[in-house]
Amino acid sequence: MKTVYSFLLLVLLPAVVTAQKGIHRELTPIRGHYKQLLQFSPKARSLQEPMDKEKFITDQETVKQRMNLTPQYLTGVKVDDFKLPDAPVNSSEQTRAEINYLLALQKYRTKEDIRASLYMADVYYSHRVQPGDSSYARYRRNLFHIGRSIGSWFNPESLPVTADFMAKVWRDASYFIWSLKFKYARIRPYVIDHDLKNLQDTDWAAYPSGHAANSYINAYIYQELAPEFTDVFVKDAYDMAHSREILGVHYPSDSEASRIFARQFVNMLFQNKAFLQDFEKVKQEWAAKAKEDFRK
């Protein structure tokens, strides 16, 4: 009996330790045009390039407003705890190559590409919205944009606990995304090359992409709830990131930095006790409601 008990400890202990420590996943390898662009140097062509001094200037009132909504889970985390590559310098070969790629997208983007990308530009969440506001339902639905095809039950009405939970996650994410934007202050690609016609007006820094970051965050969290749909979640996030490039408002390296940030951010969440407690409640909701009701 003692031998059997010892064997069970050896088998089960790793699972127990994993549960205590939470989930930590590695970032999947970079691919496609994101990988190909890494062959170009991200460094300045010379020390005398005037464009390298250009930064996006955010007024202090905006900074104060964005930083006012502090994290609810990652309260002890600082922005420098996230390890992102530096944004390619404005005069660098990589920036030029990225803009050339965006110009190619501009040349070949179709009316449907534009329509879908502009639709996705409105997929975000406002932390200041309140129940009863005319936009409240729309913002809540936006929390379920990533993975929207996995079931008719995948919505804030069927999964209210999940909606509240993801809203809290977005609050944490927004704090750090804005912190990174203020830190890097990267100008938009159309500021460098006026041949690039952006299809959306933006009044904040480029690096990293907030749309892409929040989408990958949702994908990585929903992945843990429905791993059989991982490909769907990640594809939806990839499409969101690419839509920002189609519109000409983000460099590909903005998208890739967002993917890197999202993986680190979600890994940190899964080491957080308060997050894990709320995540268990979400899992219980999914166990009860994440299925079709064919009796209606």
Score class of each variant (00 low, 15 high):
111 K>C: 07
111 K>S: 13
111 K>D: 06
111 K>N: 10
112 E>L: 13
112 E>R: 14
112 E>W: 07
112 E>G: 03
113 D>F: 04
113 D>N: 15
114 I>M: 10
114 I>R: 13
114 I>L: 13
114 I>G: 04
115 R>Y: 08
115 R>A: 15
115 R>H: 11
115 R>C: 05
115 R>I: 09
116 A>R: 14
116 A>G: 09
117 S>R: 04
118 L>C: 08
118 L>S: 08
119 Y>L: 15
119 Y>M: 15
121 A>D: 12
121 A>K: 15
121 A>Y: 13
121 A>W: 14
121 A>E: 11
121 A>M: 12
121 A>N: 13
122 D>W: 12
122 D>K: 15
123 V>H: 03
123 V>L: 02
124 Y>L: 10
124 Y>G: 08
124 Y>Q: 04
124 Y>D: 10
125 Y>M: 05
125 Y>Q: 02
125 Y>C: 04
125 Y>W: 05
125 Y>K: 02
127 H>N: 07
127 H>R: 05
127 H>D: 02
128 R>T: 05
128 R>P: 00
128 R>N: 03
129 V>D: 06
129 V>S: 11
129 V>Q: 05
129 V>C: 07
130 Q>C: 06
130 Q>H: 11
130 Q>R: 09
131 P>N: 06
131 P>L: 02
132 G>D: 10
132 G>V: 08
132 G>S: 09
133 D>I: 14
133 D>A: 12
134 S>N: 10
135 S>Y: 11
135 S>D: 08
135 S>I: 15
135 S>N: 12
135 S>C: 11
136 Y>W: 14
136 Y>P: 08
136 Y>T: 05
136 Y>M: 04
136 Y>I: 06
137 A>E: 09
137 A>T: 12
137 A>V: 12
137 A>Y: 05
137 A>Q: 09
138 R>K: 08
138 R>I: 08
139 Y>L: 02
139 Y>D: 06
139 Y>T: 02
139 Y>Q: 01
140 R>M: 09
140 R>P: 06
140 R>Q: 15
140 R>L: 04
141 R>G: 05
141 R>W: 10
141 R>C: 13
141 R>T: 09
141 R>N: 15
141 R>H: 13
141 R>P: 04
142 N>H: 13
142 N>F: 06
143 L>K: 00
143 L>E: 00
143 L>S: 00
143 L>T: 02
143 L>N: 02
144 F>W: 01
144 F>C: 03
145 H>N: 11
145 H>G: 01
146 I>A: 01
146 I>L: 05
146 I>W: 10
146 I>S: 01
147 G>I: 01
147 G>T: 01
148 R>Y: 11
149 S>D: 15
149 S>C: 11
149 S>G: 11
149 S>R: 10
151 G>K: 00
151 G>V: 02
151 G>Y: 00
152 S>R: 13
152 S>I: 10
152 S>M: 06
152 S>V: 07
153 W>T: 04
154 F>V: 00
154 F>Q: 01
154 F>C: 01
154 F>R: 00
154 F>W: 01
155 N>A: 03
155 N>S: 09
156 P>A: 06
156 P>S: 11
156 P>Q: 10
156 P>E: 03
156 P>N: 06
157 E>W: 02
158 S>R: 10
158 S>Q: 07
158 S>E: 07
160 P>L: 02
160 P>V: 04
160 P>W: 01
160 P>F: 03
